[in-house]
Simulated assay, not measured.
Amino acid sequence: MIENEQLKERYYQALLERDAQFDGIFFAAIKSTGIFCHATCRARKPKFENCDFYERAEEALLAGYRPCKICQPLSYPHQLPEEVRMLITTVEANPEKRWREEDFKRLGLHSATARRQFKEVYDMTFVQYARARRMGLAFKNIKDGQTVIDQQLAMGYQSSSGFNDAFSRIMGNPVKKTTIKVLTAAFIATPIGRMLALADEEYLYLLEFENRRGLEREIERLRSRLNARIIHGTNTLLQQLEKELAAYFSGTFAGFTVPLYLSGSAFQQAVWKLLQKIPLGETATYKDLALKLGDSNKVRAVGNANGANQIAILIPCHRVIASDGSLGGYGGGKERKKYLLELEKKIKKT
């Protein structure tokens, strides 16, 4: 989301004037209606305080907004092929749905063709779109449910029937157990995208970029393992995390002190401990880590453990590169990985 006040005012003026020069430059999300539009939308103009502005459509989707039916912001500057229009309509009819191959067949669509057309029009894959829409609803539900949940918790409810879990319809119900753990969800803005953090007063359980692939599955596994309920808000630990991340990205980093909850196999935890020992501003290869674990044949296993890390940045899996010196993979995307490594080199020099 765009935070610069001058830029927001400029974009709002473009929205009022329906300035075509700004179509595709920004997306205006309207809090009162839950939709997002491009600059030339014919709909009634909202008040400035009711607008959020995004540079990318995926950000608006992840924030819980849906595309405006009047201006169809995601089709700019293209016309929507009928197959793509059908997919969008079907997603909106049931945005919580997870798509499978047979769902395309039921619509009479060839999945490969539909996916290719979708990518050409929207500059994002259909899976990205459907997932962003689904996750956006989940994130929005958490926020919308904050007041009710806080009241119920304040009244002392401790059972699963005592308060509403906003993720339940999107990500499924956790396993029934006697003890229920309450985790607080917070969104933290960074220069390279918003992050989702889950924590209680003792530990940080998850920190990921909100558009990371597989985030739903990570949350599902965490909820099931801990029998956790998720509410939106903040706590002392999350406030500490936000301050430390702000220092990190501003270059005044003095080290992370937030306690982490690590849940994984013995091998995964061994890899994560090694990751935390890689000095800031330096890198290691997957082979380096495998050798330190005593088996050079476990390069792939190290890579898998690296990918299973649920606490980005604090457990610095971005510091692991390929043996040929290339960046290698990263759950948050290679551009973010490059940014983090360059940032840490600068911090090291100061």
Rank of each mutant, 00 (worst) to 15 (best):
E17V: 02
T33D: 08
L15A: 08
T40P: 02
E49Y: 00
A20M: 04
H38R: 14
E17A: 13
A43Y: 10
F27N: 03
A29C: 11
R44W: 03
R44K: 15
P46Y: 13
A20S: 12
F22V: 01
N50D: 15
I35P: 00
C37I: 10
T33N: 05
R42H: 12
C37D: 10
K31E: 15
R44E: 01
R18L: 02
K45L: 02
D23E: 14
R44Q: 15
D23S: 08
T33I: 08
H38K: 14
S32W: 00
A29H: 11
F26T: 07
S32K: 00
K47A: 08
I30P: 00
H38A: 04
L15N: 03
F27V: 11
G34M: 11
E17Y: 04
T33E: 07
F36N: 03
L16H: 05
T40Y: 09
G34D: 03
K45E: 06
E17K: 12
H38Q: 12
F22S: 10
F26L: 10
F36M: 09
R18C: 03
F22H: 11
F36H: 06
R18I: 00
Q21N: 11
L15P: 01
N50T: 02
Q21A: 13
K47R: 15
I35N: 01
K31H: 13
K31Q: 15
D19T: 05
A20T: 05
G34P: 04
F22W: 13
L16W: 04
H38C: 11
A43G: 15
R42T: 13
A29E: 08
K47H: 09
A29M: 12
A20C: 01
A39N: 11
A28V: 15
P46K: 07
R18E: 11
S32Y: 00
N50H: 15
L16S: 02
E17F: 03
D19P: 03
D23Q: 11
P46L: 07
F26V: 15
P46R: 05
T33H: 01
R42V: 08
H38L: 08
C37F: 00
T40N: 14
F22D: 08
E17H: 09
F48D: 09
F22M: 10
A28W: 07
F48E: 13
C37L: 10
F48Y: 15
